[in-house]
Write a protein that binds this DNA or RNA. Structure first.
Lengths: 145, 145
DNA sequence: CGTGTAAGGAATTCTGACACG
DNA sequence: CGTGTAAGGAATTCTGACACG
């Protein structure tokens, strides 16, 4: 099974993913006019919106928009929904960081595909593996060679 | 710190992310004419391309395109690059599955944000945590309460 | 085979104004 | 405050053809 390449690691972090307002609107269920209004209030911001050109949003903005929408649906006002989304955004950054840094390599364990997530902090003699077995993932410690 | 909500779990899997050809081209560095040609050869396929309407690609297609491009840059022919990309695509599915299933909840460990990835297969008394500490991630076993 | 380009039309997005509330 | 809509123009994407090789 192939090793994770540098290109693919970059993809996990997806720092460069960007998409237009139509796609963001369709994905999130938030209308284009809502998105433009939120932008005018500086709640969200496109990567570049240089004078009449099409807006481009990054992946983290998608997450933010979806979360804001969730709180709006729960009955909160827009400013409150935005404030609440900020806590979750921190969390997303963490998840992304883990994605980038912890997927060390791809291997096979007993014929099942597995991700080597690297050594334990307290016991570097063991690596943590996430193994896909019978359609679900399990976590297992495996000693280094 | 907030719990991971159902909405956010869905985002990790990002099954619904879709973007246009301009965005895919800019992200991947593959030209629009290349993407249309690859489609004509059935190497990639948009979600929907109903008669003159704009193409929409899903996230896994981005990954596939980037990987194909990598092998093209390495000097392989297009058919070979496509074949090689398929092995990596399997891997991406695994990574995605782990993302969806293994991020159980968000917590704080000694003041640092951490992701609870759930119990070990062999010793369910311990959960595996990915902790962001001083800007990097570490893995630690923590006993269940 | 694999990609680029010019061409004309179609789909998408832009801004600023206005409506409703 | 927060969102929707009609309007006209601009940016983007569409297809099919052709060039190069």
């Amino acid at each position: 099974m192939p090793k994770i390449t540098k290109e693919m690691k970059g993809l996990f972090g997806k720092p460069s993913i960007q998409l237009g307002i139509g796609d963001l609107s369709r994905i999130s269920g938030v209308s284009q006019s809502q998105l433009r209004y939120w932008e005018s209030k500086h709640y969200i911001s496109p990567i570049q919106s240089s004078a009449g050109k099409n807006r481009k949003y990054q992946l983290l903005t998608i997450v933010k928009v979806v979360i804001i929408k969730k709180f709006l649906d729960d009955g909160f006002t827009l400013p409150v929904a935005v404030r609440k989304s900020l806590e979750h955004k921190e969390m997303m950054d963490v998840v992304r960081k883990v994605n980038i840094e912890r997927f060390i390599s791809m291997e096979e364990i007993d014929g099942d595909p597995a991700i080597n997530m690297g050594p334990l902090e307290d016991d570097p003699g063991y690596n943590v593996f996430a193994i896909v077995k019978n359609g679900t993932t399990i976590l297992r410690l495996i000693p280094n060679k």
